[in-house]
Design a protein around this nucleic acid. Structure first.
Lengths: 215, 215
DNA sequence: ACCTGAACACCGTTCAAGT
DNA sequence: ACCTGAACACCGTTCAAGT
């Protein structure tokens, strides 16, 4: 069974599936090969090395996001939509997310979201310099948010439930943390992300660098 | 030489040094042991496993930041200072940064910055819920910014110089990216970070959730 | 209590050999 | 052109043996 010819696409797909099933640490060339029922070295006919395979995974996940951009919409709606589209990665491929944000892609798949974002910001009235600035601000926020959501750097605050239950947090040393421990211990990622996006949109909407009146 | 007794601290220090010298990929138990001139298994008398060692690295780097907080200062200055202190990690330990933001610390070293930030935000007039919200916003931004600065997710845009020089970016497909390629290709991390911090401070200063008039 | 070598079950990748 | 097994130089960690 599954004796379609081996191909880069099939190898990448197997890697994505394996990562989502068992986590990024489970990925090895040998493991993927056995998953596909081939010898390890067969993979090297389609992928130069493990790094390139991981790039393929990042690229594949990134290119699957549903980026529906409506150039007619208000710029703030377009920004909102693009940010939310990006966050879908964390939903659909949580365990691949780290790969997507940490491997720099030198392909069209990585350039497309950037192109769209820049076009949107230009249409919002920013010149080139400020469009790039604002894009970087959004990217930093989104990357940081996704990493929290995905379990790396959970709230960055290590207030795990165990610590709360065991009351391991010394209220003398950490009065605020212990007072807010329940809040810190749980996180509505959707709401938290929306809060940040709205605050950023609001902030750049009134930013002096933006020339008003553009659609 | 260097025949001080082995200890967790000495092992962690060797790991930090090795990471900064050769990168995170170079870290292995065997490598660190040989760096210290001991057998591999000697490490396990002071550290339960590699994961715990990496936690130690993150904790060590984090606890070395110069967090000088002045409770008398205006809250916006305190936020600014804390954000800048955090960014110093990327300067002093660039190759350990990924570890600091990606390993969740269950120790006081991780809680201290959180405690200080929450105290500052409370003093700025936020209630508990909003203090946590705003803290998370800042953390996301800072984590994302540091990762860019440190070379993971460079601009997230893969506009490396090679691509610019080789004009590999198709102006038909990516008009904005190719028009702004020089801007995208270089990044003043300091300025970019300051821009984000100021914009966030500005935004939360006028945020409705903040009760005015608090020091 | 601390150190250690041998051993086990893994890695990624090169190379030469097959078809 | 594609597949592959053997081999090499690595991993982290367990275990039993030393002091």
């Amino acid at each position: 069974m599954t004796s379609q010819p081996l191909s880069r696409a099939r190898i990448v797909a197997a890697a994505v599936e394996l990562i989502e099933r068992e986590g990024a640490d489970a990925v090895s060339m040998r493991r993927i090969a056995s998953e596909l029922g081939v010898g390890v070295m067969s993979l090297y006919n389609h992928v130069p090395n493990k790094g390139a395979l991981l790039d393929g995974v990042a690229e594949s996940v990134l290119s699957e996001i549903g980026f529906t951009d409506d150039p007619e919409a208000h710029w703030s709606d377009r920004v909102r939509m693009q940010a939310r589209a990006f966050r879908q990665i964390a939903h659909h491929y949580p365990r691949c997310t780290m790969l997507v944000v940490s491997r720099q892609l030198h392909t069209d798949a990585g350039l497309l979201p950037v192109e769209r974002a820049l076009a949107t910001l230009r249409s919002a009235g920013f010149d080139g310099v400020d469009a790039v600035r604002v894009l970087r601000l959004f990217i930093a926020f989104i990357v940081g948010s996704l990493l929290r959501e995905v379990g790396v750097t959970p709230t960055f605050a290590p207030v795990h439930e165990a610590a709360i239950d065991a009351e391991k947090i010394d209220p003398e040393l950490f009065p605020e943390v212990s007072a807010l421990s329940e809040l810190l211990g749980s996180c509505d990622h959707e709401a938290e992300f929306a809060f940040g996006v709205e605050l950023l949109i609001q902030a750049i909407a009134v930013h002096p660098a933006r020339r008003e009146g553009t659609r």
